[in-house]
Protein backbone atom coordinates (compact mmCIF):
# COMPACT_ATOMS: atom_id res chain seq x y z
CA UNK A 1 0.00 0.00 0.00
CA UNK A 2 2.94 2.33 0.38
CA UNK A 3 4.09 2.60 -3.20
CA UNK A 4 2.76 5.69 -4.93
CA UNK A 5 1.13 4.92 -8.24
CA UNK A 6 0.32 8.51 -9.02
CA UNK A 7 1.75 11.63 -7.51
CA UNK A 8 0.92 15.24 -8.18
CA UNK A 9 2.78 18.29 -6.96
CA UNK A 10 1.53 21.86 -7.14
CA UNK A 11 -1.04 20.77 -9.69
CA UNK A 12 -2.81 23.67 -11.36
CA UNK A 13 -5.40 24.05 -14.09
CA UNK A 14 -6.43 27.55 -15.02
CA UNK A 15 -8.98 28.09 -17.77
CA UNK A 16 -8.40 31.48 -19.37
CA UNK A 17 -11.23 33.99 -19.63
CA UNK A 18 -11.04 36.29 -22.61
CA UNK A 19 -12.85 39.51 -23.16
CA UNK A 20 -13.31 42.32 -25.61
CA UNK A 21 -12.49 42.76 -29.24
CA UNK A 22 -9.19 40.99 -29.33
CA UNK A 23 -10.02 38.20 -26.90
CA UNK A 24 -7.57 39.58 -24.44
CA UNK A 25 -7.10 37.29 -21.46
CA UNK A 26 -8.55 39.15 -18.51
CA UNK A 27 -8.34 36.43 -15.94
CA UNK A 28 -8.65 32.73 -15.36
CA UNK A 29 -10.97 30.27 -13.73
CA UNK A 30 -8.63 28.69 -11.26
CA UNK A 31 -10.39 25.34 -11.27
CA UNK A 32 -7.48 23.51 -9.68
CA UNK A 33 -5.04 25.74 -7.93
CA UNK A 34 -2.14 24.00 -6.32
CA UNK A 35 -2.78 20.42 -5.22
CA UNK A 36 -0.25 18.02 -3.73
CA UNK A 37 -1.52 14.51 -3.34
CA UNK A 38 -0.53 10.95 -4.05
CA UNK A 39 -2.49 7.86 -4.96
CA UNK A 40 -1.07 4.70 -3.45
CA UNK A 41 -1.13 1.42 -5.33
CA UNK A 42 -4.15 -0.66 -4.41
CA UNK A 43 -6.01 2.00 -2.48
CA UNK A 44 -9.19 3.92 -3.14
CA UNK A 45 -8.74 7.61 -2.79
CA UNK A 46 -12.01 9.48 -2.39
CA UNK A 47 -12.22 13.01 -3.69
CA UNK A 48 -15.19 14.92 -2.25
CA UNK A 49 -16.40 18.44 -2.52
CA UNK A 50 -19.28 20.45 -3.83
CA UNK A 51 -19.87 21.58 -7.39
CA UNK A 52 -17.15 23.90 -8.62
CA UNK A 53 -14.52 22.71 -6.15
CA UNK A 54 -12.38 21.31 -8.97
CA UNK A 55 -12.70 17.62 -8.20
CA UNK A 56 -13.72 16.63 -11.72
CA UNK A 57 -10.99 18.76 -13.26
CA UNK A 58 -8.53 17.07 -10.94
CA UNK A 59 -9.72 13.68 -12.18
CA UNK A 60 -9.29 14.76 -15.78
CA UNK A 61 -5.80 15.99 -15.03
CA UNK A 62 -4.92 12.65 -13.42
CA UNK A 63 -5.83 10.87 -16.65
CA UNK A 64 -4.23 13.64 -18.70
CA UNK A 65 -7.41 14.26 -20.65
CA UNK A 66 -6.51 17.80 -19.63
CA UNK A 67 -3.02 19.25 -19.59
CA UNK A 68 -2.06 21.02 -16.37
CA UNK A 69 -1.14 24.72 -16.46
CA UNK A 70 1.24 24.17 -13.60
CA UNK A 71 2.77 21.50 -11.41
CA UNK A 72 3.70 17.93 -12.21
CA UNK A 73 1.88 14.62 -12.52
CA UNK A 74 3.99 11.54 -12.03
CA UNK A 75 2.67 8.09 -12.89
CA UNK A 76 4.80 5.15 -11.78
CA UNK A 77 7.78 7.46 -11.43
CA UNK A 78 7.43 8.98 -14.88
CA UNK A 79 6.55 12.63 -15.40
CA UNK A 80 3.49 12.70 -17.64
CA UNK A 81 2.51 16.34 -17.08
CA UNK A 82 3.09 17.54 -20.62
CA UNK A 83 3.30 14.43 -22.76
CA UNK A 84 1.73 14.51 -26.20
CA UNK A 85 -1.22 12.40 -27.22
CA UNK A 86 1.03 9.85 -28.91
CA UNK A 87 3.39 9.71 -25.98
CA UNK A 88 0.40 9.16 -23.71
CA UNK A 89 -0.85 6.13 -25.58
CA UNK A 90 0.85 3.57 -23.34
CA UNK A 91 -0.53 5.42 -20.33
CA UNK A 92 -4.09 4.97 -21.60
CA UNK A 93 -3.67 1.25 -21.00
CA UNK A 94 -2.88 1.82 -17.38
CA UNK A 95 -5.26 4.63 -16.53
CA UNK A 96 -8.95 4.51 -17.41
CA UNK A 97 -11.94 6.62 -16.58
CA UNK A 98 -15.56 5.93 -15.66
CA UNK A 99 -17.97 8.79 -16.20
CA UNK A 100 -21.04 10.06 -14.43
CA UNK A 101 -23.64 10.00 -17.13
CA UNK A 102 -24.18 6.52 -18.50
CA UNK A 103 -26.50 8.04 -21.12
CA UNK A 104 -24.14 10.42 -22.85
CA UNK A 105 -20.83 8.65 -22.38
CA UNK A 106 -21.74 5.74 -24.65
CA UNK A 107 -22.08 6.28 -28.39
CA UNK A 108 -25.71 5.42 -29.19
CA UNK A 109 -24.84 4.17 -32.69
CA UNK A 110 -22.33 1.57 -31.60
CA UNK A 111 -23.18 -1.82 -30.22
CA UNK A 112 -22.07 -2.69 -26.76
CA UNK A 113 -19.62 -5.12 -28.30
CA UNK A 114 -17.89 -2.47 -30.37
CA UNK A 115 -17.90 0.00 -27.48
CA UNK A 116 -16.15 -2.43 -25.17
CA UNK A 117 -13.78 -3.81 -27.78
CA UNK A 118 -12.72 -0.39 -29.09
CA UNK A 119 -9.95 0.08 -26.50
CA UNK A 120 -8.61 -3.39 -27.29
CA UNK A 121 -8.46 -2.65 -31.00
CA UNK A 122 -6.99 0.82 -30.59
CA UNK A 123 -4.23 -0.52 -28.39
CA UNK A 124 -3.70 -3.61 -30.55
CA UNK A 125 -4.17 -5.97 -27.68
CA UNK A 126 -4.08 -9.59 -28.84
CA UNK A 127 -7.20 -11.51 -27.92
CA UNK A 128 -6.30 -15.20 -28.20
CA UNK A 129 -9.91 -16.43 -28.25
CA UNK A 130 -11.14 -13.64 -30.43
CA UNK A 131 -12.56 -10.22 -29.75
CA UNK A 132 -16.10 -11.43 -29.24
CA UNK A 133 -15.05 -13.85 -26.56
CA UNK A 134 -13.05 -11.14 -24.80
CA UNK A 135 -16.04 -8.81 -24.82
CA UNK A 136 -18.33 -11.51 -23.53
CA UNK A 137 -15.99 -12.22 -20.67
CA UNK A 138 -15.97 -8.56 -19.77
CA UNK A 139 -19.76 -8.40 -19.91
CA UNK A 140 -20.02 -11.34 -17.61
CA UNK A 141 -17.50 -9.79 -15.27
CA UNK A 142 -19.65 -6.70 -14.75
CA UNK A 143 -22.82 -8.74 -14.35
CA UNK A 144 -24.35 -8.33 -17.78
CA UNK A 145 -25.67 -11.03 -20.05
CA UNK A 146 -22.82 -11.94 -22.47
CA UNK A 147 -25.43 -12.65 -25.15
CA UNK A 148 -26.19 -8.94 -25.28
CA UNK A 149 -22.96 -7.85 -26.95
CA UNK A 150 -24.87 -7.02 -30.12
CA UNK A 151 -27.32 -4.65 -28.48
CA UNK A 152 -27.23 -0.88 -28.45
CA UNK A 153 -26.87 1.29 -25.35
CA UNK A 154 -30.50 2.48 -25.41
CA UNK A 155 -31.65 -1.09 -24.84
CA UNK A 156 -30.11 -1.02 -21.38
CA UNK A 157 -31.22 0.65 -18.16
CA UNK A 158 -29.13 3.34 -16.49
CA UNK A 159 -27.48 0.91 -14.12
CA UNK A 160 -26.67 -1.53 -16.90
CA UNK A 161 -25.21 1.25 -18.97
CA UNK A 162 -22.93 2.20 -16.14
CA UNK A 163 -21.82 -1.44 -16.08
CA UNK A 164 -21.02 -1.18 -19.79
CA UNK A 165 -18.90 1.87 -19.01
CA UNK A 166 -17.11 -0.12 -16.35
CA UNK A 167 -16.53 -3.03 -18.72
CA UNK A 168 -15.03 -0.63 -21.26
CA UNK A 169 -12.73 0.81 -18.62
CA UNK A 170 -11.70 -2.70 -17.55
CA UNK A 171 -10.99 -3.97 -21.06
CA UNK A 172 -7.35 -2.95 -20.96
CA UNK A 173 -6.85 -4.27 -17.44
CA UNK A 174 -5.71 -0.86 -16.18
CA UNK A 175 -3.90 -0.22 -12.94
CA UNK A 176 -5.73 2.96 -12.06
CA UNK A 177 -9.36 3.83 -12.61
CA UNK A 178 -10.62 7.37 -12.15
CA UNK A 179 -14.35 7.19 -11.45
CA UNK A 180 -16.03 10.58 -11.77
CA UNK A 181 -19.38 10.51 -9.94
CA UNK A 182 -19.98 6.97 -11.24
CA UNK A 183 -23.16 6.39 -9.26
CA UNK A 184 -24.74 9.79 -8.77
CA UNK A 185 -27.06 9.51 -11.77
CA UNK A 186 -28.38 6.13 -10.62
CA UNK A 187 -31.29 5.11 -8.43
CA UNK A 188 -30.48 4.23 -4.83
CA UNK A 189 -30.78 0.47 -5.19
CA UNK A 190 -28.80 0.46 -8.43
CA UNK A 191 -26.18 2.72 -6.88
CA UNK A 192 -25.49 0.10 -4.26
CA UNK A 193 -25.18 -2.65 -6.86
CA UNK A 194 -22.59 -0.64 -8.78
CA UNK A 195 -20.68 0.25 -5.63
CA UNK A 196 -20.52 -3.43 -4.72
CA UNK A 197 -19.38 -4.28 -8.23
CA UNK A 198 -16.57 -1.74 -8.05
CA UNK A 199 -15.57 -3.24 -4.72
CA UNK A 200 -15.44 -6.78 -6.14
CA UNK A 201 -13.49 -5.75 -9.21
CA UNK A 202 -10.93 -3.95 -7.10
CA UNK A 203 -10.30 -7.07 -5.11
CA UNK A 204 -10.17 -9.29 -8.15
CA UNK A 205 -7.86 -7.16 -10.28
CA UNK A 206 -5.83 -5.25 -7.71
CA UNK A 207 -7.20 -2.00 -8.98
CA UNK A 208 -6.44 1.42 -7.65
CA UNK A 209 -9.37 3.84 -7.63
CA UNK A 210 -9.74 7.54 -7.47
CA UNK A 211 -13.41 7.91 -6.59
CA UNK A 212 -14.77 11.37 -7.22
CA UNK A 213 -18.17 12.15 -5.72
CA UNK A 214 -20.19 14.73 -3.89
CA UNK A 215 -21.97 12.14 -1.73
CA UNK A 216 -20.07 11.86 1.52
CA UNK A 217 -21.72 8.62 2.58
CA UNK A 218 -20.82 6.78 -0.61
CA UNK A 219 -17.27 8.12 -0.51
CA UNK A 220 -16.91 6.99 3.06
CA UNK A 221 -18.15 3.54 2.19
CA UNK A 222 -15.78 2.95 -0.68
CA UNK A 223 -12.61 4.89 0.15
CA UNK A 224 -9.48 4.07 2.12
CA UNK A 225 -8.38 7.67 2.16
CA UNK A 226 -10.42 10.76 1.52
CA UNK A 227 -9.45 14.22 0.32
CA UNK A 228 -11.86 17.12 0.75
CA UNK A 229 -11.67 19.87 -1.84
CA UNK A 230 -12.86 23.44 -1.68
CA UNK A 231 -12.41 26.03 -4.42
CA UNK A 232 -9.55 24.35 -6.22
CA UNK A 233 -7.63 23.26 -3.15
CA UNK A 234 -7.41 20.19 -0.98
CA UNK A 235 -8.38 21.44 2.47
CA UNK A 236 -8.11 18.16 4.32
CA UNK A 237 -6.92 14.65 3.59
CA UNK A 238 -6.78 11.65 5.89
CA UNK A 239 -7.39 7.95 6.33
CA UNK A 240 -11.12 7.43 5.99
CA UNK A 241 -11.97 6.76 9.63
CA UNK A 242 -9.73 9.54 10.85
CA UNK A 243 -11.42 12.02 8.64
CA UNK A 244 -14.98 11.03 9.44
CA UNK A 245 -14.33 10.73 13.18
CA UNK A 246 -12.18 13.79 13.64
CA UNK A 247 -12.81 16.25 10.87
CA UNK A 248 -10.47 19.16 11.45
CA UNK A 249 -11.24 21.63 8.75
CA UNK A 250 -14.35 23.71 9.48
CA UNK A 251 -15.50 23.08 5.92
CA UNK A 252 -15.27 19.31 6.39
CA UNK A 253 -17.24 19.68 9.61
CA UNK A 254 -19.93 21.71 7.89
CA UNK A 255 -20.09 19.34 4.95
CA UNK A 256 -20.54 16.27 7.13
CA UNK A 257 -23.10 17.86 9.38
CA UNK A 258 -25.17 18.82 6.35
CA UNK A 259 -25.76 15.22 5.26
CA UNK A 260 -29.29 14.27 6.24
CA UNK A 261 -29.47 11.21 8.47
CA UNK A 262 -32.11 8.63 7.56
CA UNK A 263 -33.38 8.40 11.10
CA UNK A 264 -36.32 10.58 12.09
CA UNK A 265 -35.70 9.93 15.78
CA UNK A 266 -32.37 11.67 15.57
CA UNK A 267 -33.79 14.43 13.44
CA UNK A 268 -33.73 17.09 16.13
CA UNK A 269 -30.20 16.31 17.13
CA UNK A 270 -29.02 16.25 13.56
CA UNK A 271 -30.60 19.63 12.99
CA UNK A 272 -29.11 21.01 16.16
CA UNK A 273 -25.64 19.80 15.30
CA UNK A 274 -25.86 21.10 11.80
CA UNK A 275 -23.52 23.85 10.73
CA UNK A 276 -25.44 25.97 8.30
CA UNK A 277 -23.02 27.70 6.01
CA UNK A 278 -24.20 31.06 4.81
CA UNK A 279 -23.72 32.54 1.39
CA UNK A 280 -22.38 30.95 -1.76
CA UNK A 281 -19.04 29.52 -2.73
CA UNK A 282 -16.90 32.46 -3.94
CA UNK A 283 -15.93 32.63 -7.59
CA UNK A 284 -12.86 30.61 -8.61
CA UNK A 285 -11.90 33.57 -10.79
CA UNK A 286 -11.23 35.73 -7.78
CA UNK A 287 -10.73 33.40 -4.84
CA UNK A 288 -10.42 35.01 -1.41
CA UNK A 289 -6.91 35.80 -0.19
CA UNK A 290 -5.30 33.57 2.40
CA UNK A 291 -7.61 30.72 3.32
CA UNK A 292 -10.30 30.34 0.66
CA UNK A 293 -12.92 29.19 3.12
CA UNK A 294 -12.51 32.18 5.44
CA UNK A 295 -15.44 34.13 3.91
CA UNK A 296 -17.86 31.48 5.16
CA UNK A 297 -15.99 30.28 8.22
CA UNK A 298 -17.14 30.95 11.75
CA UNK A 299 -13.62 30.59 13.11
CA UNK A 300 -11.91 32.98 10.73
CA UNK A 301 -9.54 35.59 12.13
CA UNK A 302 -7.25 38.19 10.62
CA UNK A 303 -4.46 35.76 9.86
CA UNK A 304 -6.80 33.71 7.66
CA UNK A 305 -7.05 36.61 5.20
CA UNK A 306 -3.34 37.23 5.00
CA UNK A 307 -1.72 33.86 5.24
CA UNK A 308 -2.70 30.73 3.38
CA UNK A 309 -2.70 27.78 5.78
CA UNK A 310 -0.44 24.95 4.56
CA UNK A 311 -1.75 21.39 4.29
CA UNK A 312 0.05 19.82 7.27
CA UNK A 313 -0.56 17.59 10.26
CA UNK A 314 -2.39 19.54 12.97
CA UNK A 315 -2.96 18.95 16.67
CA UNK A 316 -2.20 15.36 17.63
CA UNK A 317 -3.37 13.87 14.35
CA UNK A 318 -1.51 10.96 12.76
CA UNK A 319 1.01 11.90 10.08
CA UNK A 320 -1.41 10.86 7.34
CA UNK A 321 -4.04 13.37 8.44
CA UNK A 322 -3.34 16.74 6.87
CA UNK A 323 -5.41 19.87 7.32
CA UNK A 324 -5.09 23.27 5.71
CA UNK A 325 -6.46 25.39 8.53
CA UNK A 326 -5.04 27.84 11.06
CA UNK A 327 -7.69 26.95 13.61
CA UNK A 328 -8.57 23.27 13.22
CA UNK A 329 -11.72 22.05 14.91
CA UNK A 330 -11.22 20.14 18.15
CA UNK A 331 -13.62 17.35 19.12
CA UNK A 332 -16.68 18.47 21.06
CA UNK A 333 -15.88 22.03 20.33
CA UNK A 334 -18.85 24.36 20.38
CA UNK A 335 -19.40 25.25 16.77
CA UNK A 336 -20.80 28.66 16.12
CA UNK A 337 -23.28 28.66 13.26
CA UNK A 338 -25.20 25.74 14.62
CA UNK A 339 -28.82 26.34 15.37
CA UNK A 340 -29.71 27.18 18.96
CA UNK A 341 -30.35 24.02 20.94
CA UNK A 342 -33.89 25.00 21.90
CA UNK A 343 -35.41 24.86 18.43
CA UNK A 344 -38.55 22.74 18.70
CA UNK A 345 -39.19 20.18 16.00
Amino acid sequence: MSENLLEVKGLEKHFPITKGLFKRQVGAVRAVDGIDIEVKAGETLGLVGESGCGKSTTGRLFTRILEPTGGTITFEGEDISHKSVTQLRPLRRDVQMIFQDPYSSLNPRHTVGSIISAPLQIQNIPTPQGLKKAVQELLELVGLNPEHYNRYPHEFSGGQRQRIGIARALALRPKLIIADEPVSALDVSIQAQVVNLLDDLQREFDLTYVFIAHDLSVVRHISDRVAVMYLGKVVEVAERDDLYRNPRHPYTVALMSAVPVPDPVRRDRAQRDRVLLTGDVPSPINPPSGCRFRTRCWKAQDICATEEPPLVTRLDDPASHLTACHFPVVEDEAVAGRRPAATPA
Binding site: S157, Q160, S189, H221, V259, P262
Partner: peptide, 22 residues
Protein backbone atom coordinates in the same frame (compact mmCIF):
# COMPACT_ATOMS: atom_id res chain seq x y z
CA UNK B 1 -32.36 1.16 3.56
CA UNK B 2 -29.78 -1.54 2.89
CA UNK B 3 -28.67 0.23 -0.29
CA UNK B 4 -27.56 3.43 1.31
CA UNK B 5 -24.32 3.82 3.16
CA UNK B 6 -24.98 5.96 6.24
CA UNK B 7 -22.78 8.39 8.09
CA UNK B 8 -24.48 7.59 11.38
CA UNK B 9 -23.44 3.92 11.33
CA UNK B 10 -20.18 2.03 11.21
CA UNK B 11 -18.90 1.29 7.73
CA UNK B 12 -20.25 -1.98 6.42
CA UNK B 13 -18.16 -4.30 4.33
CA UNK B 14 -20.78 -4.48 1.63
CA UNK B 15 -24.04 -2.78 0.84
CA UNK B 16 -27.21 -4.85 0.62
CA UNK B 17 -28.99 -3.58 -2.44
CA UNK B 18 -32.19 -4.84 -3.97
CA UNK B 19 -31.20 -7.15 -6.79
CA UNK B 20 -32.34 -6.51 -10.37
CA UNK B 21 -33.88 -3.37 -11.81
CA UNK B 22 -37.19 -1.56 -11.39
Amino acid sequence: LGSMPRLDREVRDRLNPVKGSP
